[in-house]
C-alpha cells in the first residue's frame, strides 16, 4: 500500500463523500435534493475556503447565506434601511449646481415616472 495521503483538499473529499459512496437510505433522512443543491453552492465556494483559510480570510463567517441567523439578517436589514433613507434624503435635495449632464436629469425623470 502506498504512503499515507497528503492532507486532502476539502473539495476533493466533499465531492466524494456527498455525491458518491454506496447509496443506503438511513433511518434519519436528509433530503438528497437539498444535498445536491448544497453541493452546487459548495462547489462554487469550498475550494476557496481552503485557500482563504491559508490567507486568513474568513468571509463566510459574515455571509448571511451561510450564517442565516435571524439576528444577523435583521442587522443587515437595518443597515440597508438606513442606507435607503439616506439615499431618499439625497434625492429630495436639489441637484448640485454644476450637475452639467443631461443624463442625470433624464435619469431622475425616469425615476419620477416609476415612483
Amino acid at each position: 500500500m502506498p504512503a499515507n495521503r497528503e492532507p486532502a483538499n476539502l473539495a476533493d473529499i466533499l465531492e466524494r463523500i456527498l455525491d458518491k459512496g454506496i447509496v443506503i437510505t438511513g433511518d434519519i433522512r436528509i433530503n438528497l435534493l437539498d444535498i445536491e443543491l448544497l453541493t452546487i453552492k459548495l462547489r462554487l465556494m469550498i475550494v476557496s475556503v481552503d485557500t482563504a483559510k491559508q490567507l486568513g480570510i474568513d468571509w463566510w463567517e459574515h455571509d448571511p447565506w451561510l450564517r442565516s441567523s435571524d439576528r444577523e439578517l435583521a442587522h443587515e436589514n437595518e443597515l440597508l434601511r438606513q442606507r435607503l433613507s439616506a439615499l431618499e434624503y439625497d434625492r429630495e435635495r436639489p441637484p448640485p449646481i454644476e450637475a452639467e449632464s443631461e443624463v442625470i436629469d433624464e435619469r431622475s425623470a425616469e425615476a419620477e415616472d416609476r415612483w
Partner: peptide, 15 residues
C-alpha cells in the same frame, strides 16, 4: 487500509 472497504455516503444515520 485494513482491507476491502465500501465507503458509505456522509450522513447515513440509523436509530
Amino acid at each position: 487500509r485494513l482491507g476491502p472497504t465500501v465507503p458509505v455516503r456522509l450522513a447515513t444515520v440509523y436509530h
